[in-house]
């Protein structure tokens, strides 16, 4: 028996149908969907230190040095989480392999660390032209493209800790990384907050 044969259950699996309903009823203003099971690794290293190049080689990705910025390459993304901390996002199938490669690359670096945190957070896509206003109902951060230049930030949304990641200039919207235990709350909050765009309250489960 292998790990892959066991059914998985994402924190917002039960909200998928409601997210689709909001997307449909909003007439294009909003798109809500969970993006579950992403590989997520916390990488810790001294900025500018010897561990960073090794980690970057293993990831095939530069680790952003500026606060609240991100780098992308292919299907991988690195988010700045602190001056010596990054969160690397990769597709689900990279779980294990990527962590092993990183750990190997950093084996001799005493100040570096890697931790698998894939189960720590799930990801919610909040897309569409109304996405910025939707989040502004529960997030005090200035999400205007002029202010949210770096593209990512750790903050609170609906009183829950989140990481916000802008989708990029072409696609209005955000990925919201939320801790698994808060995901149900955030899902309920999103459905409630979407009421003015759907004209009906899409019921919480």
């Amino acid at each position: 028996m292998t790990a892959e044969s066991v059914p998985r259950h994402s924190p917002l699996a039960h909200a998928a149908e409601h997210f689709r309903t909001v997307t449909r009823l909003s007439g294009g203003a909003l798109r809500l969907a969970e993006v579950p099971y992403l590989t997520q690794l916390t990488v810790r290293a001294e900025p500018g230190g010897p561990a960073v190049p090794g980690a970057e080689r293993a990831l095939g990705l530069r680790l952003p040095a500026e606060p609240n910025t991100l780098t992308r390459h292919g299907s991988r993304t690195a988010l700045w989480m602190g001056p010596d901390e990054w969160l690397v996002l990769a597709p689900p199938e990279e779980a294990g392999g990527l962590e092993d490669r990183l750990r190997e690359a950093l084996a001799d670096e005493e100040s570096a660390a890697v931790a698998d945190v894939s189960g720590q957070r799930t990801t919610v896509l909040v897309g569409g032209p109304a996405s910025q206003e939707l989040l502004a109902r529960g997030c005090a951060l200035d999400l205007h493209p002029r202010a949210f230049r770096g593209g990512c930030a750790q903050t609170t949304l609906a009183h829950a800790p989140v990481v916000l990641v802008a989708r990029g200039a072409q696609k209005p919207g955000f990925w919201v990384l939320v801790r698994s235990s808060y995901a149900g709350h955030l899902g309920a909050w999103l459905l409630d907050a979407a009421t003015e765009y759907t004209s009906v309250l899409v019921r919480e489960w």
């Binding site: 606060p67 609240n68 602190g82 005090a140 951060l141 903050t155 609170t156």
Partner: peptide, 10 residues
């Protein structure tokens, strides 16, 4: 000093 101005609640 890293993230810039944020609400006190953070």
């Amino acid at each position: 000093p890293w993230c810039g101005p944020r609400d006190e609640a953070e």
